[in-house]
Nucleic acid binder design. Structure first.
Lengths: 222, 222
DNA sequence: TAGATTGTTAATCGATTAACAATC
DNA sequence: TAGATTGTTAATCGATTAACAATC
């Protein structure tokens, strides 16, 4: 009954969404799997197949109606309605996140900001006043917040995570450079730029190595 | 001749590395594929296979010597020596990145910070003085910087990217919420938290839906 | 109608895993 | 030696893609 949906499908779906929003911005009304595919660097057959897991949204000979497909994908992903975020940490990072347009665009908005530093409490960031960290649990429950963002120093990240989980948050975005431990039903994203850089570095390093070889220099290892 | 290495292997490699560094911290000297696997949620056979693409690093009956394996992986990825970063944007986000420990730990360090705002130029962030944006190209060439980080507003992101590319940067980490266009030989990471959240949201949304079903409520769509 | 493009099947491709001989 | 654990093969599993009938 439950057809298993490959993990990659969901990841690509959000890429398609971003692409569709861009084309909508430009005033286009329809789009083909071919164009989407080129834009996100994916085979057009795969675009169609990915979408077909969830229904038939296109029109043969025409393509997809951008406006409708956006709505469908947003419904699938659950971003068709806004989601509230609790942001913990009102330092440089926290301030940057609070005013980040990329989140708002997809319906994620910061509903409350917390810090434990008395100098920061009460200060305004955008429209929000920084609240004392001890009100975290109370506020999360009151506002039914389901997403928590950790933007505090490494040393207090785990404690914050524990509080978030206890208060009922389901998704955590962790910007502190430590791996935090949470119960299995909680989803954590460690946003570690180093990991991405390492990944890319490898491809760069290979290219550099093979260039050396091409020039006839000795390989570093035999 | 060139055995193709699956993309996933490289990604997992950096996860193994983080795991190894942690165990080294704790004073362990050897580790088995089984333990690594548990730690990063990967099948132990896969850990061994991934490593075997690059050589034979383990000892039968013993496991892997942590110190040596760290060195090997760092060599493979190219993080066995430090890499300089040019950070563009000295606002909240830029300041946060400049002092981020996660990058330093893997040998990435910010070598220069730039901004075009006269109020920020000359200010100190950590040990570095913010330089005027127009010195970008000159400094990058002089210091042989190969990684650029964009932490400027959306509106100037593309222009900064163009300058970075022209100056010889090979990897760009883009924190502005726009997709920037670069030549094909340049690697760009769009660090978009919204994308990760959307992904997770889906799994959360499914669970919510199936819970509703379990309780006998009507499904939202038929 | 002719051209375009979907949705889907079947074939291909590639990645993951179980299993085990080798060996510390 | 007995136990542990690697490196690697072969079998399995799953995801991607080519191809094409359906149809706007």
């Amino acid at each position: 009954m439950k057809k298993k949906i490959p993990d990659g499908v969901i990841e690509r779906l959000s890429a398609y969404l971003t692409c569709l929003l861009e084309y909508q911005e430009e005033g286009d009304e329809t789009i083909s799997s071919d164009v989407i595919g080129q834009h996100v660097d994916v085979n057009p057959a795969q675009v169609r197949r990915d979408l077909s897991y969830f229904g038939t949204f296109g029109q043969k000979g025409v393509g997809y109606i951008i406006k409708d497909l956006i709505k469908e994908i947003q419904e699938i992903l659950g971003s068709d309605h806004p989601h509230r975020i609790a942001l913990v940490g009102a330092g440089n990072l926290g301030s940057a996140i609070a005013s980040y347009e990329g989140l708002k665009r997809h319906g994620f908005y910061v509903a409350a900001i917390f810090d434990s530093d008395p100098n920061k409490i009460g200060r305004k960031i955008g429209d929000l006043k920084v609240k004392p960290a001890k009100e975290l649990a109370k506020t999360i429950k009151k506002l039914h917040i389901s997403i928590g963002v950790i933007a505090v120093p490494e040393s207090s990240a785990q404690a914050v995570a524990d509080t978030l989980v206890k208060s009922g948050v389901k998704i955590i975005l962790n910007y502190a450079p430590v791996i935090i431990r949470v119960p299995p039903h909680i989803k954590v994203h460690e946003t570690d730029p180093a990991k991405e850089l390492l990944h890319t570095l490898y491809y760069l390093t290979i290219r550099a190595r093979s260039l050396k070889k091409d020039k006839g220099l000795k390989q570093l290892r035999k």
